[in-house]
Design a binder for these strands. Structure first.
Lengths: 146, 146
DNA sequence: CATTCAATTGAAACTTAATCTCAATTTCAG
DNA sequence: CTGAAATTGAGATTAAGTTTCAATTGAATG
């Protein structure tokens, strides 16, 4: 299904669904969760398929443009992505101690975005709310920030 | 005033308020708005003071730790900061067309953060809400995303 | 004032993610 | 098939940010 969508997206731009792009797409959708480009690159190598680092990055950009994948956040070490097709929009809480990412969804937040945009004559298309702090297991342990 | 706070912060750690650190501090608080480290570095050079790139980055980290400065967002080209002392917390809307940043504050959002954290047993210390879209002047102009 | 020693600095080397280059290869419409 | 256009990968490049380390500074002490 996601392949069909991606193929259509590529078609509209006169681009082709090559082996490499298909490999990246397959790998991205082979699991649920967050990933970094480098991590993805190694997963692909380890899965029999092949695609250079350059192709991984290039395809990732296309996937984001197509709406199948989203950039979750930027860390000091690079970007974190997740596939969004088939998943409802959600936001994230990030633990400063262990780096863990917790997903949450809030209907109130969605309507609040609309309200805030209206007040500022802004035409909002998306938002990212990132809450930082300590997750349940890291609380009260005196751990350093990462 | 901010110098006093910074000095106290440094004192607690056995660090000194050197010429270079003072220059960075002064420059950061000499204007209101967002800035990038590189930009700050050149402002300092142009203002008679001096501080190496390394010192600028090092001091910026200290300022963030002291709470006087906050990292606003990460762009593809680096981090964006702003001084927060004397300013109430706020969030940002970023125009995809012109890159402009609009600040806003929402009481509802603040209480919503508390509510969401509670629901997830997360101990939240801060949040960043970034709304992306088109600002008033860029709407309906068919401009490309940056 | 001299001494001392940890803190600090700056220039340059380094790191790392990400992008770009370009010759070689693949794809596909005709 | 054939040729134009798209694509690829290896490696070079870029740029933000960090680290290294020898030289300098400066506060405290004798």
């Amino acid at each position: 299904m996601e392949q069909k969508i991606f193929q259509e997206f590529l078609g509209e731009r006169g681009l082709k669904l090559t082996k490499e792009r298909a490999a990246v797409l397959r790998e991205v959708f082979s699991f649920h969760g967050h990933f970094e480009p480098e991590h993805l690159y190694f997963r692909i190598r380890g899965s029999g398929s092949k695609a250079s680092r350059a192709s991984v990055y290039r395809t990732l950009s296309l996937l984001v443009e197509s709406g199948l994948v989203e950039k979750v956040t930027r860390t000091d070490r690079g970007n974190v992505y997740e596939h969004t097709y088939g998943h409802r929009h959600h936001d994230h809480m990030i633990c400063d101690a262990c780096g863990g990412i917790i997903e949450f969804y809030s209907e109130k937040l969605e309507s609040l975005q609309a309200e805030i945009c209206e007040q500022n004559s802004f035409s909002g298309s998306s938002h990212t709310l990132e809450i930082r702090g300590r997750c349940e297991t890291c609380q009260g342990k005196g751990l350093e920030d990462r």
